[in-house]
Simulated assay, not measured.
Amino acid sequence: MTRFSLMQTPAPPGVGESCLRRQLPRHDCEACVTVCPVQAITATATTPTLNALDCLQCGRCLFVCPADALQNIRPETRHFTASTLVAPFSTLAPSVDELLMWHQQHGIRAVEMELEAFPGWVRAVAALNIRLRALNTPAWQILPPRQKAINTARRHFIKASEVDVQSTTVSIGRRARRQAFSALSEYQLSLDQAQCTVCGACARVCGERALSLGEGALTFSSSSCTGCNSCAVVCPVNAVRIDRQLGDNRVLRFSWRQKTCRCCQREFYTFSDKVERCFICLRHTYDMREA
């Protein structure tokens, strides 16, 4: 048994192997870099680098990462009673993405605070309400602090406590947000069927299984998409695009057909009935591959 385990230094925060930049060298994801309030995360050619000395452990990066790649960082523990967040509050205001999870996971609908004392929180709630309005969901309120019935300075004498106040965290990442808001989607697929060669690269790279190729069609389920954009990164003909678009969940089905190229006689796949040559032969404008 290891002795003095409580004295061990905790592992520093960092970026794990599941980072999209590590998985796909061409990927340009900068979700964590963009939201870091102190620029503790910087993007390099292969992967973001996290400076543990600058990191505030605020957890904002946790809620935007599409691959849950951040390590040794925990979301802020917050306090609430019934449907209201209560003091103590963090100096740095939470992100809208975190507040959305409090809204959905714990049914929070208000914050109890003094407006002048926490201007950052006021702005965060205002931004949250704009997002909630787009979701047709009840907005949050900011309530004045209630007068405490118990003198907390003498609490250790009278053995009383505010039993209705709880503390916890919320789930992190875009995957968790997709599950929490399962009836809505944040991203939609645009497919250029004239350019697509039905190679299946987009479906194979999709870690969320939002894209699948089989049974005569390429299928996209918007409820599973986290907007990681890996499908667009690996597409060799730039036929795939993921757009940020809030709406109801949709399942798009693009039916493909198996045909025989009239030039090289090889089988190929296409979305169009009019195409008679495979995509390789189409690039040979002088019919160099004519059988």
Rank of each mutant, 00 (worst) to 15 (best):
C263N: 14
V122Y: 04
V165L: 06
G216D: 12
N136H: 15
D273F: 13
A87C: 06
G107M: 03
V38L: 06
N72G: 05
E267R: 14
R250D: 14
L53V: 07
C278E: 00
C264L: 01
S221E: 14
S222Q: 13
T44M: 01
A194W: 08
A87P: 05
F89I: 08
C32F: 05
D54F: 13
A67G: 12
R257S: 13
P12D: 09
L143V: 11
L6G: 05
M113F: 06
F254Q: 04
Q141K: 14
T137Y: 09
G107H: 05
K259I: 00
V275H: 01
A52E: 02
C225A: 10
G247W: 09
E17K: 15
L128V: 08
R78T: 06
V111E: 04
E30F: 08
L85S: 04
I108G: 03
K274I: 03
C225Q: 09
L132Y: 09
V165P: 03
G173V: 07
R21F: 00
Q193L: 13
Q195N: 12
Q147E: 14
L189Q: 04
E76T: 12
A160R: 00
V163C: 08
R123E: 15
F157S: 04
P13A: 09
C263V: 02
Q188H: 10
I158H: 10
R133C: 03
W140T: 02
S190E: 15
L191T: 05
N51F: 06
V170R: 01
Q141I: 02
S18K: 13
A160H: 00
R283E: 00
R204P: 01
D287Y: 00
I158T: 10
V237K: 04
V251I: 15
R131H: 04
L20E: 00
D248C: 01
V240W: 03
R74L: 11
R257M: 15
L100D: 01
L213P: 01
R262S: 04
Q141V: 07
F63Y: 13
E17A: 15
A232K: 02
A149I: 06
L115W: 10
N136K: 09
R78H: 14
D54Q: 15
L50Y: 04
S255C: 12
L85G: 04
N72H: 13
Q105M: 11
R262T: 06
Q71R: 15
I142T: 06
T91Y: 11
S161M: 11
V86Y: 13
L191C: 08
T219R: 12
